[in-house]
Design a protein around this nucleic acid. Sequence first.
DNA 1: GTCTATAGCTGGATAGAC
DNA 2: GTCTATCCAGCTATAGAC
Lengths: 196, 196
Amino acid sequence: MKPARSADPDNSPTRAALLDAAQELMLEEGYAAVSTRRLAARAGANPALVYYYFGTMDNLFIELFRRGAERSYRLQVEALDDPQPLWALWEAIHDQSQTALTMEFVALANHRKAIRAEIAASSKRFRELQLDAVTKILAGYGHESVVHTPAAVVLLMSSISRFLRMEEAFGVDAGHEDVVRLIEGFLREVEGERRR
Amino acid sequence: MKPARSADPDNSPTRAALLDAAQELMLEEGYAAVSTRRLAARAGANPALVYYYFGTMDNLFIELFRRGAERSYRLQVEALDDPQPLWALWEAIHDQSQTALTMEFVALANHRKAIRAEIAASSKRFRELQLDAVTKILAGYGHESVVHTPAAVVLLMSSISRFLRMEEAFGVDAGHEDVVRLIEGFLREVEGERRR
DNA sequence: GTCTATAGCTGGATAGAC
DNA sequence: GTCTATCCAGCTATAGAC
């Protein structure tokens, strides 16, 4: 007879608690605050368990990154199934409040090459999904433009969203409305008023 | 009689060497690698001098940030004096390879509030300069557009530039050309082909 | 201005008991 | 799976000699 639960170490509640604690610490105090001792204290676990579950801090960060990326990826796939997929994609990209966490990972990647590779691979995967989808969507609308190519549309949404979220974190929002209106004006042009 | 040099501690070569070392370390290994010992080792100075010159690490980071921001600000002011000021502004924003360093400061700001305040103030100052200038420039061209408002133009340039540079650091560049063409298409529309 | 020395802390990682 | 105990390295910051 198998044990009723916890047979799979990947599903351990302690493991999840450690990942949650890491995410909170990164957001509140930056990646440098994520130490085995502080993680354990916040997760109500023992410091040595970090090594039991993840082996190294690098692995812990990578698993945390994957967990978030996986979730975002699923949300974007769902968005692209919306009757107004470009509107939904924009909302999925912009509404995700993950920017602060992403910035921490970008900084982390600067000196942990395992993490850099992980982020690079993930970015490419997102870009492929978005480019494929938007190419088909625009073709379906019969929208052919030299300026609003699929790549331009995807990169505009991504850059602007991330930049605005970053500035918001610093209390800067001058001009933000204008550029959001620019994006939404384009969406209205190809998909009409947002219905939901 | 005054000493021939080094009367002003702000102009000390040791001080400058420490700032240079901090910048290098941040770029190569991230802000967490910037410790008094490593700074001193790289600058060929003694660890205790960090405290003599800067008092705290916070102050060192702030001074380093200011040094870079000051330089960028001057470059942008100069750019806006170009006969094709929008082209020049775009080049000034996009060519500055400061993005990696900026990302480190953004992450640092997440857990050092003195630095957060410094970045916020600096961002506002840049935004004001850019908005004032671009408003006058577009008005001068008689360019009135609902989509390409001054704020939209400024934020487009800033977001796209930073995002592309960030992705480049990860070896991702799919679609970058398209969105650069979009920006440059607009510049061509209002200022004609780039001459220089 | 520059140095040594040191106090006091926090960190990653491991060995081994339970 | 979870814990204690521990080693050793690195850190900030200061006191004080030169």
